[in-house]
């Protein structure tokens, strides 16, 4: 074959093979991490559903008193908690969630609380101010950290530093599908279902409604942040697994292609040699 020597092709096949080995290994690591993360998500889901249900019932039944957590405010800054990964090579995982958060921030005076190194780097380069950089490593975050974030942001909300608080994370729908989601944390919104019924008016709050609310909201936020973190971590592993799987497949295709080329080149070289010998003996 013209131009490409068999040696060049051989080198390319070899380098492609080592790439394939790496992507294959990464896929396997992601698959085993995914299994763990998936169990965690499944275990924690009932907690959030029940917590969310309890909070929306309380929010709906308490239109008579005005907790600062419920009152919508206008103007002021918006805080976005953005959960992304620490590392790349996870397909569109990081870029999807970061793109969504930029969309959400448009037209608002925004401050970000990045979770995950990729989120931190991204918002630094986009010159978005950070609330804190203490939680930059998503993999190292514990339940306790989530609750301290919650306490911190609910205090900031009460001090009127922020008028709205959102969390942007990736929802783990299935192994093959993950969707970036933005959710409003504060102020709490009445859900349509609960406020339409308005049945729980006879609920008793100890010590009283306001205090119960003030104690429960930071807990609720901590729970939601932890939940979104679990979902995001699981989604990250799923995205990485899929991305590495297709990278491995692409490498295999290229190796097949190159092997074919290599054989053709070898064949051509042999044919040429035979032709030369025959021509020589004829002469």
């Amino acid at each position: 074959m013209a131009g490409v020597s068999t040696k060049d092709i051989k080198n390319r096949i070899r380098s492609m093979e080592s790439t394939k080995q790496i992507t294959k290994a990464m896929e396997m690591v992601a698959a085993s991490k995914l299994r763990q993360a998936q169990n965690r998500v499944l275990a924690s889901r009932p907690y959030f559903e029940i917590l969310y249900g309890a909070i929306s019932d309380i929010a709906a039944s308490n239109r008579d008193f005005s907790s600062p957590y419920l009152k919508p405010r206008t103007g002021g800054k918006s805080l976005f908690i953005v959960i992304a990964g620490d590392r790349g090579l996870a397909g569109g995982y990081n870029s999807n969630v970061l793109k969504l958060s930029l969309e959400q921030m448009e037209g608002k005076e925004s401050v970000v609380l990045p979770i995950g190194k990729k989120a931190l780097d991204y918002f630094r380069s986009h010159n978005v101010p950070c609330h804190t950089e203490a939680y930059a490593e998503a993999a190292a975050l514990t339940v306790g950290d989530c609750f301290s974030i919650a306490k911190d942001i609910s205090n900031a909300f009460l001090d009127r530093v922020y008028s709205e608080i959102y969390v942007v994370y990736t929802n783990f729908v299935s192994v093959l599908s993950q969707s970036p989601t933005a959710m409003k944390l504060l102020p709490l919104e009445h859900t349509a279902r609960a406020s339409a019924e308005g049945v729980h008016m006879d609920t008793v709050y100890e010590p009283n409604a306001e205090e119960a609310f003030a104690a429960i909201i930071p807990e609720y936020l901590g729970g939601v942040i932890y939940g979104s973190l679990c979902e995001s971590r699981c989604a990250e592993q799923a995205a990485r697994r899929t991305a590495m799987d297709s990278a491995t497949q692409n490498a295999e295709e290229m190796i097949d292609d190159l092997t074919l080329k290599f054989n053709r080149a070898r064949q051509a070289a042999i044919t040429q040699e035979i032709t030369e010998i025959v021509a020589g003996s004829d002469a």
């Binding site: 609920t203 008793v204 100890e206 010590p207 205090e211 119960a212 807990e219």
Partner: peptide
């Protein structure tokens, strides 16, 4: 143990929310 002390719940308790 609630924020205000111990509390017990038995069947047919009134609707309540307690931190």
């Amino acid at each position: 143990r609630t924020v205000e002390g111990d509390m017990a719940v038995m069947a047919r308790h009134i609707n309540c929310v307690v931190p």
